[in-house]
Design a protein around this nucleic acid. Structure first.
Lengths: 192, 192
DNA sequence: ATCCTAACGCAACGTCCGTCGCATTTAGGG
DNA sequence: CCCTAAATGCGACGGACGTTGCGTTAGGAT
């Protein structure tokens, strides 16, 4: 439904159609925002027929999920700054950048996740993967002897990252990079 | 558009229609969830005509906003437990209850806020009001001498409450009351 | 008790959205 | 180079959604 993995005919026109469509989605998103995102508009802009969009992506959330998948880096790892606090700050700055980008694909997918269970599941899986990978900063800190070995990685990452998401996505208020750093420091200090 | 404040004829049938409709919204929400919530279904269940719903509430998000307004307590105040940590735990438990209720009106309004700017604005105003009132726990703690007077109330409340919202609403994973308490304690400890 | 009009009920209409059947193109293998 | 089937293009259809004009009901004031 989403990925072209294992598709029987992934090359040539099919791939071209996909990239055209996803590019159109991003442009439409930038111009009209999520609530103004329409399958028809994407079809017109991309030059791909409506029916094809309905067949391959079904819904607007489906388009955004695929856009997220196309942009996801399978080899992503949290940067190693040499300290837990530094690592958490780096993580928060990445999230900050993703949420304040124009258009923010992350924010669009979040919005989409409230409309179809498919999108909700895709986003949940994406985040589970990301939080799992990010847990590396905790095990590195344990290895350095910065924090005790029993530390709950997820709770720690939640303390660091949740305020950022909450402030920007749900409270819909701006958050400066300094504030994002601040919450990373609080999280780092909470486990010392 | 939303509130009946200052309406020219708020009594009798009009009020009855409103409560019938809002009750139907809650029932439909419980049975079919937010994405299954339809104006037509609410009309049928409530016995109120479609046209009336479109005229008074316009959209599904409009219905949910009014439901939120109807349930909002204008005299709400955070409970005073005698300590900052206790107060924050109490706040988090209220949020926890609101998010895990079935149906959770809060979650439904959050979903609605991604569809219309009206709903987004209403939710933002609601939360601004709540966070402002909740800042009382911070000033009480300052008065007690628990924390320094320059403490940023919003950042502190963000540290305490954001993990709860993030885990349940965005990550869509369960959060125990103990975990909610835990994050309240971290927040309290972060300003000592 | 009577009147006025806000609020509601009702039916019909137009539009938008998603689907379906069929024709056409083209990727990928023989 | 040809053949097959997957993928796309195309037009039309049906249904859901929101709107509009008009008639009816009932709240609130005189």
């Amino acid at each position: 439904m989403i990925a072209e993995v294992g598709a029987s005919r992934p090359g040539g026109r099919t791939a071209r159609v996909r990239s055209d469509v996803l590019a159109a989605v991003e442009s439409e998103l930038a111009e009209h925002g999520y609530d103004g995102l329409t399958i028809d508009a994407v079809a017109v802009r991309s030059g791909v027929h409506r029916t094809t969009l309905y067949r391959r992506w079904k819904t607007v959330p489906g388009l955004l999920v695929d856009l997220l998948a196309a942009g996801a880096d399978d080899s992503w790892e949290p940067v190693d700054t040499g300290s837990l606090e530094g690592d958490l700050i780096a993580v928060n700055r990445e999230i900050h950048a993703a949420l304040t980008a124009r258009p923010s694909i992350t924010q669009a997918v979040i919005a989409a996740s409230f409309r179809t269970t498919d999108a909700a599941d895709a986003l949940t899986r994406f985040w589970e993967d990301r939080y799992e990978r990010t847990a590396l900063v905790v095990s590195r800190a344990v290895a350095r002897g910065e924090i005790p070995s029993g530390t709950d990685a997820h709770q720690l990452l939640l303390t660091a990252t949740a305020p950022l998401y909450h402030q920007v996505v749900l409270l819909r208020q701006p958050m400066s990079r300094d504030q994002a750093d601040h919450h990373a420091r609080i999280a780092a200090a909470s486990v010392r």
